[in-house]
Amino acid sequence: MSEVNRSLGELPTDSWMSHLPEALQEVPLFHLAIPGSHNTVTYCLDKSIRSPVDLTQPDVLKKLDKYMKPVVRPFVHKWAVTQGSNIKQQLDSGVRYCDLRIARRPRNHSKDLYFYHGVYTTVTVETVLKEIREWLDAHPREVVILSFSHFQDLDEELHNLLVETTKNVFVSKLCPRTESVTLRNLWNKGYQVIVSYEHGIVSFHDHLWMHIPYWWANKCKAEALVEEFERRKGRGRPDGFFVAGINLTEDLKYICSHPTESLKDLVMSTYPVLLRWVEAQRPGPSGGCINIVAGDFVAESRLAQTVISLNEHLLNK
């Protein structure tokens, strides 16, 4: 790795965008290499047995959870947590893409919305958005991409409420989808937040961006994930923003055969293989290039620094 490349990887992770060379400040964000976190808000999943499992879980798990909660729930929790650090810690670690999966909790008659993965979070969506706003206020030249997706049990009223909440929290920081998304332009206009939204309501709001494609390999082995992504790269990258999610997916067979382990054990043991693949990637507009790379337990790994370093390739053109 060259000295310059090392310097990009060693930029302060809480403000790495602010410190990019001038040449990279003119590159559209969808041609840069950007670190992200998969299922960003799972660090605060509800451990209480009173909390239901989320509606996407298999029927067999729902039945087991209903009758054997004290036994089943610890297993659900340790395989559902994908990030051990809170939102501000993730942003400090270099994360600039957040994967936000939003739901209304069953049997909750309030209009509060939560995140979910296996079970629901204890903190609301609005609380986390306000924490992101606070962080952005302290880092005025950093830009975050928030992907709202996998909506669960939201009706039209709740979608409208979520959109209005987003507007009220971020106000003038929201970037319209018609804007040029170079850092230089975003800085000049004070935009710091790009919100993609996986719902038809996006067409009625110019500050909402179309859903960002997320490459998900659905593999529990790092080598199989790499093989799948190489196949996809051969078919070319999507236009605009897209995510290569290097998050592994455990199946029931794997969980049952590793009863003393957790998702974190699986992820951390496979990061060496995954990071070697990331190190070999290049950002840019060409067919085989990457853009956002998202993973699990990002703040506990060197994923962010590795991804940021990839932008050196754009300086050598």
Rank of each mutant, 00 (worst) to 15 (best):
H258F: 10
D153A: 08
L314T: 03
P70M: 05
R237Q: 11
V202I: 09
I34N: 10
V195F: 02
L310H: 07
M210D: 15
V307K: 05
D59R: 04
T178N: 09
K219E: 10
T82L: 11
G288Q: 04
V27F: 01
I255F: 12
M1S: 12
K78M: 11
T124R: 15
E179D: 03
I290E: 01
E22I: 03
R50D: 14
E126V: 05
V119C: 09
V226N: 13
V195P: 00
V71L: 15
T249R: 15
I290T: 14
P140V: 02
N311G: 06
V195D: 01
R107L: 12
V243Q: 09
Q281P: 01
H207L: 02
S85K: 12
T260N: 12
T260R: 13
D59S: 14
L208Q: 05
A280Q: 15
P213D: 06
L186D: 06
V293W: 02
V119W: 05
T40H: 00
I290F: 04
Q90P: 01
F204M: 04
N291S: 09
N218D: 15
R282E: 14
E228I: 11
H258T: 10
S7G: 02
A138P: 02
L252F: 15
Q83P: 00
E142V: 03
D155K: 01
D99P: 07
P70C: 09
D153H: 08
S85H: 05
F148R: 13
N108I: 11
Q25F: 00
S15V: 09
N316P: 00
V181F: 06
R133Q: 05
L183G: 04
P70N: 07
L252W: 14
T260K: 13
H38E: 07
G190W: 02
C220Q: 15
S2L: 04
G84N: 12
K66F: 14
S269K: 15
H205E: 08
V293Q: 08
E279P: 03
K88G: 03
L174A: 07
L55S: 11
F170Q: 07
F229P: 13
D99K: 07
P285C: 04
I145K: 01
Y67S: 14
G118E: 10
E157Y: 04
P35Q: 10
L29R: 03
Y254M: 12
D54V: 00
V181C: 11
C220Y: 15
E10C: 09
S110H: 11
G245V: 07
V226S: 14
G190R: 02
F229C: 10
P35M: 09
T82D: 03
G234S: 13
P12H: 10
E312C: 09
